[in-house]
Amino acid sequence: MWNRAKRIAAVALAAGWVGGCLAAAGDDPLQSPQWTELRRTYLGASPVVFDPRVKVSGPQVAEDSMNVPVGVRIDGLEGVSRVIVIADLNPIVKVLEFQPRGALPALHFRMKLQQGSPIRAMAQTADGTWHVGGIWIDAAGGGCTAPSVGRSAANWTETLGQVQARIWQGEQQSRIKLNIMHPMDTGLAPGIPAFYIERLSLRDGADREWMALDTFEPVSENPVFSFDFPGVPPAGLTLVGRDNNGNRINAKVAR
């Protein structure tokens, strides 16, 4: 892809420039000019390692910039308490923050991409270290500044916050897939304020939290998430959440 080659060349050039003054930028396998700054913003002074055990998956090129599928899997890394996903070159960088709790440190979602960008998962372990993995996804763009598709339908308010779900039970692990009806407006489309789900969690009958997810504007409209659990997930799970306008989400996830 010509565009991608050009962009990589530009990024490499920029990285070379920055690399001359800041050694830290040179560590980044994705050679992003933003990395030094993003690291400071999201990870502060905590120790950081680029770690191949943090695997991000996605297409090489985003066919639909409004719905770019991304997967995160972390194998062989104990005690992951938080996973932050960012897109370096998106106008809104932070995509989500995941606390696996009883779930595996793995999740799938779909997001909006404004242009080709590194997509990174940053997982924090008990010792405070951040383990970072990522890929580059190329995109024609426009995913963040276009209005949500559902806005053109008259009845989007009737389905707001509705949830479709399914649990696939396996012997080793199980998957919960969730689809929540929500415009997830970024606030970057002219005349449409930011309107998005901020918080989702799965709770059992005793109100114990089995996973918690903070979501931000770049998550796709009517988002679909998959969470994986070791063995069989607890019975009677409820998806509880809210958006930035105070609308509540509450739905029982039947097994």
Binding site: V61, D64, Q162, Q164, A165, N179, A251, V253
Partner: peptide, 21 residues
Amino acid sequence: FARSVAHLYRRYEAPTLKQAR
């Protein structure tokens, strides 16, 4: 194939999910 997954997967996936209340 990668493009087709983006175009079509949602249509096959949506009916596998059930309304949760």
